[in-house]
Computed example of a mutant assay.
Amino acid sequence: MSKYDVFELFTYLRKCPDAYVQPSDFFMKEGLNSIALIYDTYRMVSNDFLKNEFDIPAGFNFRAIQDNHWRAIHISAWLLSHPDFINCPSIENKLYSFWFEELLHASEYVKYNEWISDDERAEEMVRLLLYCCEIIPDGETKDEAADKLSSLSSVDRHKVLKESYEAHERIMNIKREMAEKKAREAANTYGRE
């Protein structure tokens, strides 16, 4: 298949082994060593297995990351083990943004197991990774890829739902205020008679 084929990457992601879905060792004694997994993924992507410097800010607080987000990172590390990403040093400096910014926001709305079990969420992770790495999927233009990611985005969907809910609340408040005003006017008219 072609390099960076969304369907191929999607299929690969859906085969994520159970070992990658384990909680982080920050939460369980027998959990997955998340830091080692991140560093090994950096090494595999850069194809520099002696590398000790990574694009993670000094003093970054790994303990502040929630379990759901850690598990999403673990699953994405499996995705990054696909041959398309091995020995691809041009994306190494983009992984921090993917893991600790974009995936953080998406993980607020997606339960970790949905990244594997739900077709749309699996495709969202693939497209989010490609977007963060500035890779255009095979057979798509930049605009097509952006549109497809936008249509799948959990963050965008939540934002639309929130705006819709807030608009509905504003309408209900206006209706309530109008009804109260009408009741007051009727009471005033009744009181004058």
Rank of each mutant, 00 (worst) to 15 (best):
C16L: 07
Y190K: 13
R63T: 13
D156Q: 12
K182P: 00
K148I: 04
S24G: 07
L95W: 01
P83V: 07
A19K: 11
K111L: 05
W70I: 04
P83G: 08
R127W: 03
N52E: 15
V45H: 02
E163V: 01
W70A: 03
K148F: 01
A145G: 06
S81P: 06
K181D: 06
L9T: 10
K182L: 13
G59H: 06
L95Y: 09
Y4C: 01
Q22I: 00
V155L: 08
E140F: 13
R71W: 01
K51G: 04
K175I: 11
F60Q: 02
M28W: 09
S46W: 05
L130Q: 01
L152R: 13
Q66G: 14
E92G: 12
F27C: 01
E169L: 14
V126G: 08
M178I: 11
M178Y: 14
E124S: 03
C133S: 09
G31P: 06
L50V: 12
D119F: 09
L152G: 06
R176S: 13
M28Y: 12
L152K: 12
E177T: 08
V126T: 05
A36S: 09
R157G: 02
D55W: 13
I86K: 15
F7S: 15
R127N: 07
F62R: 06
L129I: 09
L128I: 01
D143E: 14
R127L: 15
I135H: 10
S150F: 11
